[in-house]
Computed example of a mutant assay.
Amino acid sequence: MALFPPSTNHDYRGAKISAWFLMFVAVTEFIPGLIHYFLPDGGAGVIGGVDLSVRGETIIAVFAWFGAIQIPFALLLFVIGLRYRTLVPLGLLAVITMRALAAIDGWFLKGSYSGHHPPEHYAGPLTVVLGLVFLFLAVREQPVQAAG
């Protein structure tokens, strides 16, 4: 069995822009993943403004752990958008769910205690809304273009 089975793009009937949006989201997931994993403080202090004076090592470790999840997730989303477009709706649903849960936590639950909001707290709700639009377009069958 090959690592990459044959492409399913010819069976995809949704909007191509949805696949492109999924690949864009993959990039916006991959770059923070690299930051969280490779930056000395994981971006917690220099980008997120998190106070690292108490339990800083643990916070940095959690950021690195999250980066280790983001990097392969982003690669998977990119491959789906590029080669396996029949899975675009499922990829978008995963993104919507992840970003919605993170936004709810960041604005209303555990992540909201300090009142400080890093960039992701603002990008998350926007990604959810755009993700819903592109999910609608991905599941809505596009008219077949006549060859000619």
Rank of each mutant, 00 (worst) to 15 (best):
A61K: 04
V50P: 01
E57T: 09
G67M: 05
P72K: 12
V79Y: 12
V54D: 12
G81P: 02
F78Y: 15
I60A: 01
T58R: 06
F63H: 07
G67D: 01
R83H: 13
F63M: 07
G67Q: 07
F66H: 10
D51G: 05
F73S: 13
F78H: 03
P89C: 05
F78Q: 05
G56A: 02
V54C: 02
V50R: 02
L82D: 11
F66K: 03
G49V: 01
E57A: 14
G49Q: 02
R85C: 11
A74P: 10
G56D: 02
G56R: 03
Y84W: 11
V88Q: 00
I60Q: 01
T86N: 09
L77S: 06
L52K: 08
V50A: 08
I60S: 00
I80M: 04
G49K: 05
R85E: 13
L82W: 15
I69S: 06
I71Q: 06
Y84I: 03
G49L: 05
I59G: 06
A64T: 06
A68I: 06
V50L: 12
L77K: 06
R83G: 02
L87S: 06
L82S: 11
S53Q: 11
L82V: 07
L77A: 12
R83S: 11
Y84H: 12
L75W: 11
I71G: 02
R83T: 04
W65I: 07
I69Y: 14
A74N: 12
A61H: 03
V79H: 05
P72A: 10
V62L: 13
F73C: 13
G81W: 02
T58L: 14
G81M: 10
L82N: 11
D51H: 01
G49F: 07
G67R: 02
A61T: 12
G67C: 03
V50G: 00
L77R: 01
L87N: 04
V62N: 09
F78K: 04
T86K: 15
Q70M: 15
L77E: 10
R85D: 03
L75D: 10
V88R: 01
I80V: 13
F63W: 13
V50Y: 09
A74T: 10
V54Q: 13
